[in-house]
Amino acid sequence: MNALLATVRRDILLALRRKSEVLTAVFFFVIVTSLFPLGIGPEPVLLKKIAPGILWVAALLATLLGLPRLFAADHVDGTLEQMALSPSSLGLLVAGKILAHWLLCGLPLVLLAPVLGLQFDLDASALGILTLALLLGTPLLSLIGAIGAALTLGVRGGGVLLALLVLPLYIPALIFGAGAVEAHIAGLGAGGHLSLLAAMLALAVFFAPWATTAALRIALE
């Protein structure tokens, strides 16, 4: 467990020395969500209707942006080899890296989403549901994404390939995440969607680090 926390601390420290990389994903999120009203038109009713979908798709793409770097730097400079040979279990270290990725790339999106939601005229309770859905959904995106990042590590055209592998797997998170907000706005209640998101998150917490570790060992061979 200490090794997990050490990995989180290390990755955050490294990110703080290179702030631009984290900020890029956040700005991307802001810019993409702001582009939609410009493309679609400023009609409040329509914007309110499509807001959950837009914010979720933008969050999905912003998470994707940081994924290729998740293991690449450690792979190139040999740190990943050291991790694989460490007395600490590689699965724990990988879990730490995924957690750090979420703290750096996912959490800022969760915190920004209510502000961006205001652009789309969402009311306070809908913003709350949106934030909650993203809070449950973005760790899921990091966990699934880590598998793709490990599989495409050091592979030709890895970044584009990563998107191709990961995006179809993101669909359930997108459906339930955006669906939670839509259901709430429609007065149907978001409880079902949110519990399904939580269930998927629980499943991913157990299996994704394991699959990622297996994929990393293959990449190191």
Binding site: N2, A3, A6, R10, L14, D77, Q82, M83, S88, L93
Partner: peptide, 24 residues
Amino acid sequence: GHHAAVKEDLTPLENLRLAAALDG
């Protein structure tokens, strides 16, 4: 191995201590 396995953005001291922390 061949690789330096050190982080360019960290100081030697941080590198050593964090590498040890990862090893528990």
